[in-house]
């Protein structure tokens, strides 16, 4: 694994622990490695090719953002319009609200979802009954593999005016019906908590995997020193998974401009456009479904550039302020 943790003395009387890069990560690279490990490289080829074809190949299509693109005329014969599509997007009265909604929803998802996965992983890490841990882990990771369409349908049914949640509120609590999914403020929070519920289990597994790499001797030493479980969590577990945390945080920061359109499009309705319309749904309704491919691509390119900027900024901050450094 990439890290190990060693105990070091701390000033305040309780032991501290420092994560060290493992020697295993310092492997030989270069042509020699290719010669030695060609079967591994060969196995990686399909993945690499698919990334090149499906990840980088379509980047050439970004030129559409600068064209009055007609699929019939193609890229070559479509009129070059420079930045007109960007101007059209920025001038649209709904663009700025879509941008803000994207940022707000993503930020809330990150603020709530990111620590939730860590907390879940820490809690799971403390469970000692194996079968119980397995059950909880399975139950929490399962939603990640359910499609947004299914999740959306479930939630629409649950939160409908005549759905289960309203029924329970009315019958058992005597509270009036609440129109959850067409109330702009409530809808936003449902989106955030739904995403947290769906993704926390998956990210918790990544953190749990990182926790297994922590040397158990550290915990034993801490116990001998009289450190409580809480202190062990703060001084051993969290530092031990810090690299994973930084990596995921940097990666997730790049998605701050992408609010998760699949989730929203299966859930939203015009009553909540004011808080739920994000850049992707905006571009789908007002550009793509109108055949404005150039406009839609311009919005997508804008998002990608902002996303790249966010990754670079977050990585720089991580390098500047974190002992572990950035992702790159």
């Amino acid at each position: 694994m990439g890290t190990s943790v060693e105990a070091v003395p701390k000033d305040r009387g309780t032991p501290g622990y420092r994560v060290q890069p493992s020697t295993a990560s310092r492997r030989r690279s270069g042509p020699g490695s290719l010669r030695d490990h060609w079967p591994l490289y060969l196995m990686a080829m399909p993945g690499i090719v698919s990334i090149l074809v499906f990840g980088y190949g379509p980047l050439f299509g970004l030129v559409i953002a600068f064209l009055d693109y007609s699929p019939v005329r193609g890229v070559r014969d479509s009129e070059w319009v420079g930045l007109d599509n960007f101007r059209t997007a920025f001038d649209n009265p709904f663009f700025m609200s879509a941008l803000w909604n994207s940022l707000i929803i993503s930020s809330l998802k990150l603020t709530i979802g990111f620590p939730s996965a860590i907390v879940l992983a820490l809690l799971l890490n403390e469970v000692r009954v194996r079968w119980f841990k397995g059950v909880i882990q399975t139950a929490t990771i399962l939603p990640f593999f359910v499609s947004w369409v299914v999740v959306g349908t479930m939630f629409r049914s649950l939160f409908a005016p005549d759905g289960v949640i309203n029924e329970v509120r009315q019958v058992f609590l005597g509270i009036d019906q609440l129109i959850f999914l067409s109330d702009p403020e409530i809808f936003r929070w449902i989106i955030v908590f739904q995403d947290t519920w769906k993704a926390a289990g998956y990210f918790a597994v990544l953190y749990l995997a990182a926790m297994t790499a922590i040397d158990p001797v550290l915990y034993e030493a801490a116990e001998v020193d009289g450190a409580s479980r809480w202190r062990q969590t703060l001084d051993i577990t969290l530092p031990g998974i810090r690299t994973t945390m930084v990596t995921l945080f940097v990666l997730l920061s790049g998605y701050l401009i992408f609010a998760g359109w699949e989730q929203i499009i299966v859930m939203y309705n015009p009553s909540v456009y004011s808080t739920a319309d994000v850049l992707e749904t905006f571009s789908l309704r007002l550009a793509l479904s109108q055949g404005q491919y150039g406009l839609a691509t311009a919005v997508g390119l804008f998002q990608s550039v902002i996303g790249l900027g966010l990754v670079l900024i977050t990585n720089w901050l991580a390098r500047r302020y974190s002992e572990q450094g950035g992702l790159f």
Binding site: N92, P93, F94, P270, S271, Y273, S274, R285, L286
Partner: peptide
């Protein structure tokens, strides 16, 4: 399309 969107959003807000 923008007009339709304005009508959709505004009228729903107005009546509620």
């Amino acid at each position: 399309a923008t007009s339709d969107e304005l009508i959709t959003r505004s009228f729903l807000e107005i009546v509620r």
